[in-house]
Amino acid sequence: MLIVFYLAAIVAIVSTILAVTRSNAVHSLLYLIVSFLASAVVFFVLGAHFIAALEVIVYAGAIMVLFVFVIMMLNVGSETEIAEKKWLSIKTWGGPAILSLVLFCELAYVVLTKESLPGSEAIVTPKEVGISLFTQYVLGIEIAAVMLMSGIVGAYHLAQIKKKSKHRFLGGEE
C-alpha cells in the first residue's frame, strides 16, 4: 500500500506541475485530470473509498468536463497557445515559484514539528459517511443546496448573451 501511495503521490505532483506549466489549455486540462485520478488513488489508499469514487466521478468527470466544454466552445486556438508560451518564461513563474516554495517550507515546518504519527488502517466506509452526512450535517446539505441553487441562478443569468443591449454603460475608465 505504501508503494501505491508513493507512486500515486509522484504521479499527482508531476501531472499537477505539468498541468500548471503546459501552454496548451487542453494539455493542461488532461494533465489535471490525471492528477485528479492520482488523487483518487491516494484517497483510496487513505481509506476514503467513497471520496475516491467522487473524485473520479465529480471532479475529474463532471467539473473538468465543464472546463473542456468551455475551452472547446471558445476555441481559443493557437494564438493563445503561442502567447502563453512566450509568457511562461522563468521571469513569469520564478517569483511565484519562490513565494510558493517559502509557503511550502512553512507548511512543511508545521507538519514536521509533530513526531511521526502512526497512520490508521481503519477504513471509513461510505455508509458511515452517509449516516454522518444525513444526521449531523443535514443542515449543511441544506446550506450547500442553497449555494448550488444560487450558483445555478447566477450562471443562468450570466451566461445569457444578448446581442443588443438597450442600456450600456460607458467604458470603465475613471
Binding site: L99, L103, E106, Y109
Partner: peptide, 16 residues
C-alpha cells in the same frame, strides 16, 4: 493574487 500570497506568507511567518 500575488499580494494575497505574500500576505499569507507574512502572516504565517509572524505566527510561527
Amino acid at each position: 493574487a500575488t499580494g494575497i500570497a505574500i500576505g499569507l506568507v507574512i502572516t504565517l511567518t509572524i505566527v510561527l
